[in-house]
Every structure is written in structure tokens, then in C-alpha cells.
Design a protein around this nucleic acid. Structure first.
Length: 420
DNA sequence: TGACGTCAAGATCCG
DNA sequence: CGGATCTTGACGTCA
């Protein structure tokens, strides 16, 4: 089983994507942004490699304004070698990637121009995966689209338009149930017509179940598995948990370990790949990966702890001590308890006192080498924070700058600067 | 016509 | 100037 996450990445400044708007478009700027984004993509793959994450959804925005008429840059040719090299990295590591055109790519639209744009967009995605040299187990995920008052007819239109697509799209396309219109039952019925796999989305299914639903989530997953043929690779599903506002179907900020672990245990066939849709992206991917790993080495948890510890200390000194105690048992790492405690720290409202205590901890890295001005600035920021004149964010920002200046890699790798 | 979702860039304002 | 807080973009469907 591989766990993956979608598009963006937390915890490093090197992995942020850039973008470009139409009014600023020039070939020069476009190439700068694309170059930057490919570097970021490589960084993300490198990160995934060392964190044993085997799956990634590549953002559609990797190439800005990829199908906009203004963009006539032959980037695919210009970056052929570069893309091939990145692709080799993916294959060497046995990673699986995917892409997911958004809600504005509508293949079954009643408007011919919208369908044309959708085709163009799908072709861009397929060509990008082709350029990486990724085979057809690396999928393109799409929703069925609009209903236009007649679901059956709209599904038929999807099938007709599907038939006209380029083979590199056809062989990659998979269809997903959505949260409003098309249930998993609808998607399965369309799959029978077009013979492409169904990717089951757990949250969409909960929000938009089939009528007279008699089956469990796990039975539906099993039924969807039958749409996956050997050339498609392992079955993929999307897993997410709902945020605090259940109605709008927003994704939760992080995956709750206990809930995910129960879900995993109930899966009928565990030989599937799971794409997480969650706000904290790679962080939850590492978590879920460790939760399902048999006999994970204590080292993996210790590496996690190194990244989270200052955040935890800032929120709850009690939880900080509890996790330290837990990690003293080197023989039997208790991953589930570790993450449950961590989640508790996220739910604990932090006090100014514990935040200042943590900042003093961090200052320990600098106090011997900082200039008098830096010391003065630090102390005045602390005073400002105490008096509600400065935010914690601005203090964290300053500590990050110092970490960068003095190359304190232990701090630069800390999630303290990225989560709140 | 606005909400929906997404995230970064750009604009603007504050101290 | 740094930092906080909007607004905009790029897209299609649906209420």
C-alpha cells in the first residue's frame, strides 16, 4: 500500500510553487516560474523519498497558464530533457504520481467550447505525464461534470466525448464520485460504458451516497476494485476526513490517527493505494504511512518528534513531557499513541507563557553568536509579544531568519515555523 | 449574480 | 520597511 498527498507541501520554503497571471505574462517570466516549479517538484520528490512516501498528486499549476491562448511557449520541447530526468527519479524510486484537473475541466459540458477547452486541458496533463516518462498506472483523475437537468444524458455525453480523446488521455483517465451530483453508483455505471477505473472518494461518498444505499463504505471500495485492470496498476482511493463544518465538506486540517487506523483495519483488501486529501498534506501522509507500517523503527518516530517538538512545547509542556516519556521505550514504538498525543497538542490552546518559554529555548541556539543588535531585537519582540503589540507570527518569522542566517538546520527543518 | 475551491501575487494600509 | 489584511485571478456549474 502506498500513501500519497495532493499537490502542495508544507515545511520547506524550497517546495512552494509560483504562479503567473495573464496580465504579467511574458515568455521570460513564464520560463522563470516554470523553472522554479520544476525545482520545487524535485525537492518534493526528494522529500518524499527520504520520508518513504511513494505517491504524489502533481499540481495542475506546475505549468502556469498551461493552456491559456496567451501561452505559446514551446515549454514541452524546451524542457524535454529536464522532465525526462525528473521522471527517471520517479521511476528509480518506484513512485506513483497522478494529476487531477479541477472542477473547471468539464468534459461533458453542453457547450462545445467548454468541451474543447477540457480536451485541451486533459491533453496538457497527459503530455506532462508522458514527458516524465510515467506509464499509464500514473493516472489522471476527473469528475464526470455537470448534470444539466438530465443525468443519464449527461453521462452519455461524457462517454461520447471520451471516445474522441487522445489515447494517452484515455489510458490514464479515471473517474471519481463527487460531493453533489454523481454518486459512486453513477460513476460505476459510466465506467461500464467507457471501461475506465473508478476512484472512490470516501468523503464525497459520505456527503453524496447512492439512493437506497445498502452497502458499507468498504463494500463499495471492493466493488470499485473490479474496475481496475492490471495495466491500471493498484486500485486507488481518495481518503479524507471532514473538517469542523460538516455541511460544506471541507477537508480536515489533519488526519486523525485513530480514525484512519480504524478505517485501515476495516479495509477488505489492503493492497490499494490511498490518496489523502487533507490540509496538512505531507505531514498527514507521513503519519498514515507510519501507522500502517509493520514494526516501524523508533528512528522514524524520533525524526518526526524532532520536527514537531518546539510546536508541541509552545502549546503544551505537559504533552511535550508525555511524548518524551513515550519515546523512551525504544523497543516498541507506539505510533498511534504518539500521534494521538500530538493531536492533543494541536487541540490545546497555547498560552503566552509557554510560547515565550519555547522562544527562549530557541534563543539558546543563537545567544552565543548573535550580535548585540539581534539580542536587542529579540528582547524587544518578546516584550512586544507580552504586551500584545507583536504577534507570535512575527516572532517566529524573526527566529526563522536567525536560523537561516546561522544555518541552524535542526531549526530550519522544524515545523514550528510552518504550523500553528 | 454570487457561491463554490484554491493558493499565490499584488495592492493597500498600519505603525 | 516589515507585517497584516484584503482583493484578484482562472475556470464552469448551479441556485
Amino acid at each position: 500500500m502506498a500513501i500519497g498527498y495532493a499537490c502542495i507541501h508544507l515545511g520547506s520554503s524550497k517546495t512552494q510553487l509560483s504562479t503567473l497571471h495573464v496580465k504579467n505574462f511574458t515568455q521570460e517570466k513564464f520560463l522563470l516560474v516554470l523553472d522554479h516549479n520544476l525545482n520545487a517538484l524535485e525537492e518534493i520528490f526528494h522529500y518524499n523519498m527520504i520520508h518513504h512516501i511513494q505517491m504524489l498528486r502533481i499540481s495542475s499549476d506546475i505549468v502556469p497558464l498551461s493552456t491559456h491562448p496567451i501561452n505559446t511557449v514551446p515549454w514541452l520541447d524546451m524542457y524535454k530533457d529536464r522532465l525526462t530526468r525528473i521522471g527517471q527519479l520517479i521511476q528509480e524510486q518506484g513512485m506513483r504520481v497522478s494529476m487531477h484537473p479541477g472542477q473547471y475541466t468539464v468534459l461533458n459540458s453542453i457547450h462545445a467550447d467548454v468541451v474543447q477547452k477540457a480536451k485541451k486541458d486533459l491533453l496538457y496533463h497527459a503530455k506532462f505525464l508522458d514527458a516524465l516518462g510515467c506509464d499509464c498506472t500514473n493516472k489522471l483523475v476527473l469528475h464526470i461534470g455537470g448534470v444539466y437537468g438530465d443525468k443519464k444524458e449527461s453521462m452519455h455525453r461524457f462517454a461520447e466525448n471520451f471516445a474522441t480523446l487522445d489515447p494517452s488521455i484515455k489510458q490514464r483517465l479515471i473517474i471519481e464520485n463527487d460531493d453533489k451530483s454523481y454518486t459512486v453508483e453513477d460513476v460505476l455505471s459510466l465506467s461500464k460504458q467507457v471501461h475506465i477505473p473508478v476512484v472512490f472518494d470516501t468523503l464525497h461518498h459520505t456527503l453524496n451516497p447512492p439512493q437506497n444505499n445498502q452497502l458499507s463504505l468498504f463494500e463499495w471500495i471492493k466493488i470499485c476494485q473490479e474496475t481496475w485492470k492490471p495495466q491500471d496498476g493498484k486500485q486507488k482511493i481518495h481518503y479524507s476526513q471532514t473538517g469542523t463544518n460538516f455541511k460544506n465538506g471541507a477537508h480536515s486540517s489533519f488526519i486523525q490517527a485513530e480514525q484512519f487506523f480504524q478505517f485501515y483495519q476495516q479495509l477488505i483488501d489492503k493492497d490499494i493505494d490511498i490518496m489523502l486529501e487533507v490540509k496538512d498534506k505531507n505531514l498527514s501522509a507521513i503519519k498514515c504511512n507510519l501507522l500502517i507500517m509493520e514494526n516501524p523503527p523508533i528512528k522514524y518516530l524520533e525524526e518526526e518528534w524532532a520536527k514537531y517538538k518546539y510546536f508541541v512545547l509552545g502549546n503544551s509542556a505537559k504533552t511535550y513531557q508525555e511524548i518524551r516519556t513515550l519515546l523512551k521505550d525504544k523497543e516498541n514504538p507506539d505510533v498511534l499513541t504518539f500521534y494521538t498525543l500530538l493531536e492533543h497538542a494541536f487541540d490545546t490552546p497555547s498560552s503566552k507563557m509557554s510560547q515565550i518559554n519555547t522562544l527562549q529555548h530557541l534563543w539558546g541556539y543563537f545567544k552565543k553568536r548573535a550580535t548585540p543588535q539581534e539580542k536587542k531585537r529579540f528582547l524587544s519582540l518578546i516584550t512586544g509579544y507580552e504586551e500584545d503589540k507583536k504577534t507570535l507570527a512575527s516572532l517566529k518569522n524573526y527566529m526563522y531568519k536567525l536560523s537561516y542566517k546561522y544555518s541552524v538546520s535542526y531549526l530550519l527543518d522544524s515545523l514550528y515555523f510552518y504550523i500553528e
